[in-house]
């Protein structure tokens, strides 16, 4: 079909993109896997012999606590995003079309602003002499300013604030596809509102939920600047551990092993997402 003259173009394009991906995606990731099984070396970062010490260190109670705490904060973030985002996406999908576009635009605008600057803005609000405390004091709800900054709650608020649209957008897209006839059919077949929600709406929106969870849960473990600005030294994420190990402690094998842990978590979530979509496809057929 295509003439010979096109072939050099095809070859060149494919070589370029393959080259880029192999050199800047595949090779670096293999290096990380390699680094995780090597020995820490203060001078050259890494040295032989090969061993699994780094992985053993992941289960060191000290780090295990940090990881579990990070997982807990990420899970809370995801849950809160879901609780806010699910009804939000539902309500959004019911708004008139023209206004929907404007509302989505408004949802995205803040996310065109530097995330670091937005995290910093939260500090103005949450600080001990910040705006929220001042407001609460002036209406007499509290008598002493509350310690909100440098707490677990502040980190979770920061993460929710940064990641909420990543939950809302995939949910909005499944609600937008949700066909009204299915809801009417469910109603005609005698299902109440609750039964329709549990048996029709929830299963049909599940892929959106999982996509949202995937887009929120993993970054919520990696965004190290949020605890740096809002959380103090006791509320660390996996991302902070990886960063410290690579840039400060110079313990590459351990940092690499922690990063592989995150990658495995990602693979698991992607698999669950795929499974839910496939199940839905079979039921729909």
């Amino acid at each position: 079909m295509h003439s010979i003259r096109q072939q050099p173009f095809k070859t060149a394009v494919l070589a370029l993109v393959w080259g880029w991906l192999l050199f800047l995606v595949l090779a670096p990731n293999l290096l990380v896997v390699g680094a995780s099984v090597m020995t820490r070396d203060p001078a050259t970062f890494l040295s032989l012999p090969l061993n699994l010490d780094a992985y053993r260190q992941l289960f060191d109670p000290l780090y295990l606590d940090v990881f579990l705490h990070s997982l807990y904060m990420a899970a809370m973030t995801t849950l809160i995003c879901l609780l806010i985002g699910y009804p939000f996406a539902w309500a959004l999908s019911k708004v008139a079309r023209q206004r929907q576009l404007l509302l989505i635009f408004l949802l995205i605008v803040p996310f065109w602003t530097n995330s670091l600057v937005r995290t910093y803005a939260l500090k103005l609000i949450l600080a001990t002499n910040g705006l929220l405390n001042k407001a609460l004091l002036s209406v007499g709800l509290i008598e002493e300013p509350l310690q909100m900054l440098y707490t677990e709650g502040a980190v979770i608020i920061g993460l929710v604030y940064l990641l909420l649209p990543f939950m809302i957008l995939p949910l909005y897209s499944v609600f937008d596809d949700l066909r009204q006839e299915l809801l009417l059919a469910s109603h005609d077949l005698g299902a109440g509102r609750l039964a329709t929600f549990v048996h029709v709406i929830v299963p049909l929106t599940l892929p959106g939920v999982l996509a949202g969870v995937m887009l929120v849960l993993l970054p919520a473990m990696g965004l190290f600047f949020v605890p740096d600005i809002l959380g103090g030294s006791r509320n660390l994420l996996v991302g902070n551990v990886i960063k410290n190990q690579f840039l400060d402690a110079r313990n590459w094998p351990f940092g690499a092993a922690a990063s592989i842990l995150l990658t495995l978590a990602m693979a698991l979530l992607m698999f669950a997402h795929k499974l839910s979509k496939r199940r839905l496809g079979e039921e729909g057929a």
């Binding site: 670096p28 960063k243 995150l262 990658t263 990602m266």
Partner: peptide, 19 residues
């Protein structure tokens, strides 16, 4: 391409630093 998009940024970051 999909994996690059979904990977936590920090994973991409350290792999590139290593490279």
């Amino acid at each position: 391409l999909f994996v690059v998009m979904m990977s936590p940024e920090i994973v991409l970051a350290i792999s590139l630093l290593a490279l």
